[in-house]
Write a protein that binds this DNA or RNA. Structure first.
Lengths: 135, 135, 135, 135
DNA sequence: GTGGTCTAGACCACA
DNA sequence: GTGGTCTAGACCACG
């Protein structure tokens, strides 16, 4: 699982983590019982305060998505509500629509937009690969 | 134009307004030169403070989306981004990256993602066209 | 950096701050990467509300002069205007026009005005150079 | 006397008028006893509300710069404090310095800046000439 | 400690 | 009526 933070989005960092982990959990990117990255290394990797990661995990526990076993770590609980395909599409549609609108205002045409999307996909896939190579 | 605030999303209220108005402007729900709702009545309707709406409008103004004339109101501007190409690419990259990350966690693969992007682009362009056909 | 507010000038306080800080930044009184005074202490020192200083800093940020990192502070950015050539010309034209109008009413003729402009340019360039020589 | 308003400077329109007229009065652009333009035509010419011009004149009367004779118009009072040459230079220096700083931030170099200054001077002189031709 | 958001309410400038 | 500025003070996110 690759987590990515945008410090300037206005959205609190801990909520970005919560959303990303919740999405992964509800879509099979994380399996039941699988351990989440532990707080300290993750905080270091993301260049974020440990408290911020801890807060995200606390929130996730509160939502019943994960379970914290003191001294052992955090684990994904039985996935109680996996997203349906349409639910996933809905979330994603919202994100994509925002990018489409931004492109329109910035007067970026369809081709340039699609090219940029592909470029970002490639860049992201490279990052995922690097990470899995390191693990 | 229908504006709706979600007070629990964690996203600042003024940014929710900015996004929704930008969407309306880009998709033709609002025409060039047309006045936006005045700050005070809108604030009342949304049960939000006047300053919060004012902040959203100020943000839209310096994104070059609207023009505000003190004493008269706020109006949709001819779209014409004042930013350099690289500044625009930076903004757009941020938007796209958010969608890419969401797709990754939702386990939506590259092809499905690209298909959805194209579908949203088409849908958006259709919407713009419909509105302009009504002229 | 010395900041001074004139409450009777009719010019909004936050704009006075913006101008003075821009001046300090441009003339080398503030170096790239250097932190600006924090909002709260500065507000107290100037006997102005915290929000007023925050508004000035926000304005500076979207002019691309400073960068603010929530939780850490505000820092002077590498100067690099994000505006298109025409947008920049527009801003500058406004500034110049104000000076031209003042010269007209002060009965300062074209040659004297141009001489003064050159003198101020030289003076400014000297100041910038001195500061950089101190490195 | 050519008056010029900038609606987006943040400075109240009536104060822009006050300053310009005061400068002209103190520098010989207006002579003692000379009538000022009457309110209605001036408001029309500047595309400003009559109240705004009236307020400027009221302020000037308050400052003792002009005298209003009901039914006849407004006249410049005996100029009690003409600006010295250095006083004029000081006011003008402030205006010019702001333009110089703006040029620096906008990365406009010396030559381009001087060219723009000359261009604006020419444009302004044309305007003055047109106006005097019409009178 | 930092900056960010929001509220409530005042006064000003302008049409 | 419009938007703009400013204050005072609360709470949040983050380090």
């Amino acid at each position: 699982m690759l987590l990515q933070i945008d410090f300037k989005s206005g959205k609190p960092v801990y909520l970005q983590l919560v959303d990303q982990i919740r999405y992964a959990a509800a879509s099979g990117g994380l399996r039941t019982g699988e351990p989440l990255p532990s707080i300290r290394p993750l905080a270091e990797e993301l260049r974020v305060n440990r408290n911020t990661v801890a807060k995200a995990y606390a929130e996730l526990e509160n939502q019943g998505v994960i379970e914290t076993i003191p001294g052992k770590g955090c684990f994904l609980k039985e996935s109680n509500s996996p997203f349906t395909k349409s639910a996933r599409a809905k979330i994603l549609t919202k994100e994509i629509d925002e990018a489409v609108v931004a492109a329109h205002h910035l007067q970026v045409d369809r081709d340039a937009f699609l090219a940029l999307v592909k470029e970002r996909l490639d860049s992201f896939e490279r990052k995922v690969k690097e990470k899995s190579d390191n693990d």
